[in-house]
């Protein structure tokens, strides 16, 4: 509590990895009331032009948040997260979340870090990109 983690520009966060499974996405569908069939029904996904069911965008956004929290611990906080969705995360694929510190600033006595975010699949195809700003301490 209240401790500032040591951060430098160029630091990379631990990877955040999740397999694309309906078992996972159904759990998120249940809490977010998000039951579009293309997230779980292969026939519907194909009829809409997709090769397989794909993950919900809010869950992909939640993955960015979880990755940041895993790194920050409870001493920090998320100030902002932006995400641009570049392509679906399909069932059977593996998503890897990456983040790199791009800047460090002190704002009103609070140490902030800027980060570049991305999510790729196992072929290095970019699924999403984004940016985040976090506070590193609890002043």
């Amino acid at each position: 509590m209240g401790t500032t983690i040591k951060v430098s520009v160029g630091d990379k966060l631990p990877l955040f990895v999740r397999d694309g499974t309906v078992e996972h996405w159904n759990r998120f569908a249940a809490v977010n009331n998000e039951f579009a069939a293309h997230h779980w029904d292969p026939d519907i996904a194909k009829a809409e032009g997709f090769p397989a069911p794909f993950c919900m965008a809010p869950l992909q956004l939640a993955f960015f948040h979880a990755m940041l929290r895993d790194w920050l611990g409870e001493g920090g906080r998320i100030i902002s997260v932006t995400a641009k969705l570049k392509g679906p995360f399909f069932k059977g694929q593996t998503l890897t979340g990456l983040a790199c510190v791009t800047g460090i600033n002190v704002i009103n006595g609070e140490k902030h870090a800027d980060l570049d975010l991305s999510q790729i699949d196992e072929t290095d195809r970019t699924i999403a990109i984004g940016k985040a700003q976090v506070a590193l301490s609890d002043n």
Partner: peptide
């Protein structure tokens, strides 16, 4: 289509 999401949070 939804193209971008920007979230900002208070403490």
């Amino acid at each position: 289509l939804l193209t971008e999401i920007r979230e900002s949070y208070s403490a």
